[in-house]
């Protein structure tokens, strides 16, 4: 699978989170902590599963801890995706 860019990951995350929150994508801040969003743990796990399916690899349980905003997570996902694409 081709590597995902940080911009693509950010767009994906914002669209999915906006859908779950029932707001326009423009209303979802890239800088807000995930735990400040109005997502309950059920929605967060469903989103994580959808994200893993999109990326094609599993995420560590500590990923959201170390990358606690959309901007930080998208940057990490791009790095990890590139590393896996290069290694493949």
């Amino acid at each position: 699978m081709a590597a995902v860019t940080a911009s693509e990951a950010e767009t994906w995350l914002i669209e999915k989170i906006a859908l779950r929150l029932g707001v326009a994508p423009g209303e979802v801040s890239r800088e807000v902590y995930f735990d400040e969003l109005d997502l309950d743990s059920t929605e967060a796990l469903i989103l994580a599963g959808e994200l893993e399916n999109w990326l094609g690899f599993e995420l560590s349980t500590t990923t959201l801890w170390y990358h606690p905003t959309i901007k930080d997570l998208a940057s990490y996902l791009a790095e990890e995706s590139d590393r896996r694409a290069t290694a493949a």
């Binding site: 469903i46 994580a48 599963g49 959808e50 893993e52 399916n53």
Partner: peptide
């Protein structure tokens, strides 16, 4: 209980957990 369009891989993650 779930939003329309909830993806199966997402529900699978919830089930596995």
């Amino acid at each position: 209980a779930l939003l329309p369009g909830t993806p199966l891989p997402g529900l699978r993650k919830l089930y596995d957990t």
